[in-house]
Write a protein that binds this DNA or RNA. Structure first.
Lengths: 242, 242
DNA sequence: CGGCAAATTGACACATCTCAAAGCCTGTGG
DNA sequence: CCACAGGCTTTGAGATGTGTCAATTTGCCG
């Protein structure tokens, strides 16, 4: 019944062929499933985890806190993302992971992951890849916040989320559920709450995007992507030999 | 005479113990050394490298270009940094790497690096670590640009550069050479050239930092670090079992 | 129905960008 | 040795973007 692990397999399968043997290794991984309430801290900044977790359901983000109480969400994660896999080699967390909605996380002991690095080189490279894809997304985030207008940042984010959700089958009828508050979106885009609100209003007015409550529809992805300057390359949603 | 590889060993040795055997593996790696002029493109966006390179000397940065001609430098790299190691598992470059000064890069075939992943698990984890440290620095960059004042960004950058250079013995008498133009610093910090100039002027006025031409002195690191909110944790400059 | 969090709007202050010009270094050629 | 060109730095002034503060509205849940 480890359907949880299947999500991980799905993530990897979108990027490379995984063998039956590799699938078996993943399926036999010891796992501990934990439910978190919205707002809960899944992994604490400064901690030294001996597990890494991937998201089974719900929304999470990496959070860094400034001195003035401001916080920056440096990355957004959805089901199937191996959120703090880097802790396997980094040891200490330099940021926290928080639940933006009720969510289920699956914890895998580092011991078992290290065993994979000892015995399954190709699978190791795929796990490595998963952390470098996160890094690529992070790079994009840096460039967005540094050199793009608020509207472009937001539009770009929505394009990215759309494709990432599509990969896990969470898009129905060009529509997805996006349960973040505007305050959280502000922390993600490096904007103030008020300006985020106005940016959303403006983006709505363009009709590139329909956004009612927590349901977002992108009627014409190409149009929104063009406006946002979005190129999906960096998501590495392509099967390659890695 | 592969002193180049010793730089790489040094980078890793700052983070974990590497065995003689591992050192031998690294020393026996085939390598191609290339000299680049200031401004040259070392790795092109969109390319599919079959080599990855680390910097032997000089300064490089990852660059992303916007439509309007604006560019964002998403990361800065110094001697010993394995700049595009992630291409081993990511295949296609989502950004370019450019030379900010004359510099020497050492290219290692992916074939050989993949062999390491097949035969040397611990070394593999260390290479993996190198990419995740880059990611940690990238996260910090995102938070800086998103939620910190220009002066804090600049001060933080100088603290980071100081420690990274110290690790490779490039700090003499609390002083280091920092040959970036203000225009490049602007692209790195997500600021305009003019505002960067004023920010540098303000930071100079504090005397936390002495900056003449391309020589920077930090007389009291703790003071500057306090101002910048700098915590070196994320650089992972600590020997651990990984 | 009341209470609370989130969304929305207005007004204003201030940070940052853009445009434009001047000054300063460095290397080069006469 | 000087003059000049070109890139980089510095400064000013004004336009614009974005943040802050404060109040109102909306929607949800008990």
């Amino acid at each position: 019944m480890s359907t949880a692990i299947h999500l991980l397999c799905q993530y990897l399968s979108h990027r490379d062929v995984i063998t039956g043997e590799e699938r078996d290794i993943l399926l036999s991984l010891p796992q501990r499933t934990v439910l978190f309430q919205k707002g809960a801290e899944i992994v604490a900044e400064g901690s030294r985890p001996d597990n890494s977790c991937f998201i089974y359901s719900g929304w999470t983000a990496r959070a860094v806190h400034g001195r003035n109480g401001a916080r920056q969400l440096t990355a957004l994660h959805v089901a199937g993302d191996f959120v703090d896999l880097h802790a396997l080699v980094l040891k200490q967390m330099d940021h926290s992971v928080v639940a933006l909605s009720e969510c289920v996380a699956v914890f895998i002991p580092h011991e078992s992951l290290r065993a994979i690095t000892e015995q399954a080189p190709h699978l190791t490279r795929l796990l490595w890849m998963s952390t470098t894809i996160d890094a690529a997304i992070q790079r994009k985030m840096t460039a967005l916040i540094g050199r793009h207008t608020p509207a472009e940042r937001l539009a770009h984010l929505m394009c990215e989320v759309y494709l990432r959700l599509e990969a896990i089958g969470h898009i129905k009828n060009r529509t997805f559920r996006f349960p973040l508050t505007q305050s959280e979106i502000a922390d993600l885009l490096g904007l103030s709450l008020v300006h985020t609100n106005r940016t959303i209003r403006d983006l709505r007015a363009t009709n590139w995007i329909i956004w009612e409550q927590f349901d977002v529809t992108i009627p014409d992805f190409a149009k929104l992507a063009k406006f946002a300057g979005f190129d999906s390359n960096y998501l590495n949603l392509r099967v390659e030999s890695r």
